[in-house]
Design a protein around this nucleic acid. Structure first.
Lengths: 224, 224
DNA sequence: AAATCCAGTCACAAACGCGTCACAAGGCTG
DNA sequence: CAGCCTTGTGACGCGTTTGTGACTGGATTT
């Protein structure tokens, strides 16, 4: 069985070591400015405070992604309050999801165990493959036949959302909500422009068109 | 906007109805031995107690998965204590994740809103099948013996309405109303043209004629 | 058999929906 | 703070969809 490495800011780690019964399955490590100290084989989870020491959480997030040893970690950003703007910034910096703090023991374990328990599904969302298209969720990189597709942040999120919901028509409303852009309200026609830009980016990189338009309804990512 | 259906064991549902501000986005329903009572369009969440009534939570979980109407629900198992063995059993029975109880209002909403905002919400993918004809409501795609039938928006809506009301003569008025075209008023003869176009589209795709004309009455979709 | 009714089909104009472009307003970087 | 990158928006044009009136042929009634 895999050991799950959990990286935490602050003192929560030691508190958790007592809390968790099954010690063989977890390691806990403090996340310092230089990243984690120990690195064990297995899936990694990092909980990054919005502000940690002097280093902004966003910068920490980018460093984790940049370091090949931790590029695959699942990064959860801990926000102090539920500011949509901060959420966007966190996700753009490479975070996989977020919680609104303060972080508690149960919150950590809930997240880790919940996602871990859906191991297969989780795997599918870490790295997505469909024919020539692969999407590396951790490295925020999409490829066509191995060739990197340069995507802007919004384009990548759009593609990821499609990959997470294949074979179903996504309305423009779905897409706006799925990308977390309900506030401020966005014109539905803007989605058309997103689609156009995403298609063009993939095409320029030598790829095909994975997105099908369903007139008067929305768009589908066809799998099979 | 999609409505999220939340199924709960016990009395938590009513407590939540008061708690939640935006009533349009949620329905709450008690999860009895026969499953949920009401079924509304949209994603579904079930919170299943480890022991509910006499029926073990695990069995409830399996039943939800077995019933096509709820097979796609996101099932959260509510454990009494954090027993690794129970966790595994829950997941094997088809649960998506779990919480260690007792279940509170905030725990429910945290889960639902957290995942919903991440876009991993699962919709009920309804699928209609009748002989050679299948209609995928999620992909908005009809097939004849697996062969896709290219349908225009109005044709698909028409076919779906027939599939939802089989073995019943539908008047032209029914059909106009069923497709939501009361405003502006539409000439009833126009329905004839719809029918003709739908029949032709199915035929072109290699299918038969599932629509029977009832002279001076309307049209029927024959099932069986 | 004639008259009447009814449904299938066609052509066409109007409305609709989508792709695309240029531009402006941030946001980020150096 | 200057310049580049990203992203939302309004506008334009094109192809598609769709409602309608007219015509036709088969069914039903008288």
């Amino acid at each position: 069985m895999d050991v799950i490495n959990i990286f935490l800011t602050g003192e929560l780690g030691e508190s958790l070591e007592d809390f968790v019964h099954d010690q063989r399955r977890f390691t806990f490590d403090k996340l310092g400015p230089d990243g984690p100290r120990r690195l064990v084989e297995g899936p990694m989870w990092a909980f990054v405070d919005w502000v940690m020491d002097d280093l902004a959480g966003l910068e920490m997030c980018r460093r984790l992604r940049a370091d090949p040893r931790t590029a695959d970690a699942h990064v959860t950003m801990v926000l102090e309050e539920d500011d949509p703007e901060d959420r966007r910034r966190a996700l753009r910096a490479g975070a996989d999801d977020y919680v609104v703090g303060p972080l508690t023991r149960t919150a950590v374990l809930d997240r880790v165990l919940a996602l871990q328990s859906r191991g297969v599904e989780r795997h599918a969302t870490r790295r997505f493959e469909a024919g020539a298209l692969t999407i590396d969720m951790a490295a925020l990189q999409a490829r066509w036949n191995g060739e990197p597709i340069p995507l802007r942040p919004n384009e990548f999120r759009l593609l990821r959302y499609f990959a997470e919901n294949p074979n179903r028509v996504l309305t423009r409303e779905d897409l706006i909500g799925g990308l977390g852009k309900r506030e401020p309200p966005i014109d539905e026609r803007t989605v058309d422009v997103w689609i156009g830009r995403l298609r063009r980016a993939i095409k320029v990189a030598g790829g095909g068109n994975p997105l099908r338009t369903v007139r008067s309804m929305g768009y589908v990512f066809d799998l099979n």
